[in-house]
Design a protein around this nucleic acid. Structure first.
Lengths: 259, 259
DNA sequence: CGGTCATTTGAAATCGTTCAAAAGGAGTGG
DNA sequence: CCACTCCTTTTGAACGATTTCAAATGACCG
């Protein structure tokens, strides 16, 4: 389970045994199993712990007073939940599981110590945060500019690629634990319209969805219709930044990761 | 002009004379004036410098192949442009001015040194980044869930508050250099519909917009219709985080800011 | 004063929502 | 195992919000 977090970080850079060890031990201290459709943390609470998703899927979401709900991110196994919000006095959104999940909670202080001691881990997490932000920007484009079919096509491209990158997919089959209700609250569409649009995608032979499994039948055509360009996911390992080749020393590296 | 950046940071925490001095001198080394509607950096370029907006407004945006365009953020005087994307091998979006603007460019290395030496500055910038992310999340809600009138009402609430917080507004009048075309690419609406919806807001006596100046005539009603809750802007100074009260030493503080 | 760009208007067409209800699936307790 | 319930998916039809197209008006600049 903790493997997931390591694998996620190693998408970015190699880790030494020592680093894996340090992170693993921290993650294994407080592990909780959470049932499906349960809130992990709720809007308005202070963010005390950093939370890691060891297995299962989760989502960030926000409610309006009248019940409307917008999903702002999906978290896959290995993702850290609080990179972006840790430091807020109170959370401005909630975090909930999709299916049942396992999470590790790490107190702020301990996380801090870990990052101070292992700058490469700090850099890895900083990178994960940058990617999460890039995904958020792509979602803004999705919500603002794309048509219903394009939105869903784009979302499915993204999720299948992210799932693949953390090893969740086997020969074209990709787990998709989301309901059409989830897809609706993600794309800003009504549930009914999500349903009809999915039928359209299926009808065109682009995807098949059955038993909570997604299969992309015509990847090229799907990407094409969504104008999906995977560079924003930055799945390849990044090159070192030009200006910082010779940066050295733990403190420097740590902040480098930071900024 | 450089005052803007200092004031922006001081929304978060006090700065020592030494810190102001260090930042000011760095910012004043390479200042450029850029005309209206000009790109500052373009999608696909590597991010070499950190860019600060000293005066004028700017926006982050992304293009689709067929010309559709989505604005993903507005930057006001004092905002740093690259907190969130610095570290990407190539930028996944562009940055452009709205009206004419003045920017400061700081090479990565020098910025790094500054943050290493002045952890409080590092913390200030980290905070600004957290707030920028929160704004992005709120925009997702805006695009996904709110109706046309609600979208515009919410956006106007946000922009007027942000403008106020950096001292751009005088007695209810707030500069709004955005065209209806800008508002359309921000809210995902057509230009025509932006126009009609603004007329509606004006007709209800909620706002008046003339000569690139916004005046919110009925703040309570406007906030109400948009379900605008300003906590996501985190304009009050944050309390120190619970777990980190006793954190000390430059390296530690720097990473604290980071994460 | 002409030219360019932003705003405004009208009317028709489209996309997406809403309402209402049925059908399918999965889990639970009797 | 069946009956029951709850939740998700699906369908139909009417309605409404928003877009599109096309053109006129207004504002600003050189």
């Amino acid at each position: 389970m903790i493997q997931a977090v390591l694998r996620r970080l190693e998408l970015f850079a190699g880790l030494s045994d020592q680093e894996r060890e340090a992170l693993s031990s921290l993650l294994s201290r407080r592990v909780r199993r959470i049932g499906p459709r349960h809130d992990i943390v709720i809007e308005g609470q202070p963010a005390r712990n950093v939370i890691f998703l060891l297995s299962g899927w989760a989502c960030r979401y926000k409610h309006l007073h009248d019940g409307r709900r917008q999903t702002m991110a999906y978290l896959l196994p290995g993702d850290a939940c609080d990179l972006a919000v840790f430091g807020l006095p109170v959370l401005d959104h909630s975090l909930a599981t999709i299916g049942s999940a396992r999470i590790a909670e790490v107190p702020a202080r301990q996380m801090q110590d870990l990052l101070d001691r292992h700058p490469r881990l700090a850099r890895g997490f900083a990178w994960a945060r940058v990617v999460a932000e890039a995904i958020g920007r792509e979602w803004l484009v999705n919500l603002g500019q794309r048509s219903a079919a394009e939105k869903l096509a784009h979302l499915l491209c993204e999720l299948s690629l992210r799932a693949t990158s953390v090893g969740l997919c086997v020969d074209g089959r990709c787990p998709l634990p989301l309901t059409q209700i989830d897809l609706a609250s993600t794309t800003g569409m009504s549930i009914v319209h999500v349903n009809r649009t999915l039928q359209d995608l299926r009808g065109r032979g682009l995807v098949s969805i059955e038993g909570r499994q997604l299969r992309i039948l015509a990847p090229a055509r799907l990407r094409d219709m969504a104008q999906f360009d995977d560079t924003y996911l930055h799945l390849g390992r990044p090159r070192r930044r030009p200006g910082l080749e010779s940066a050295s020393g733990p403190a420097r590296q740590a902040t480098a990761a930071a900024f």
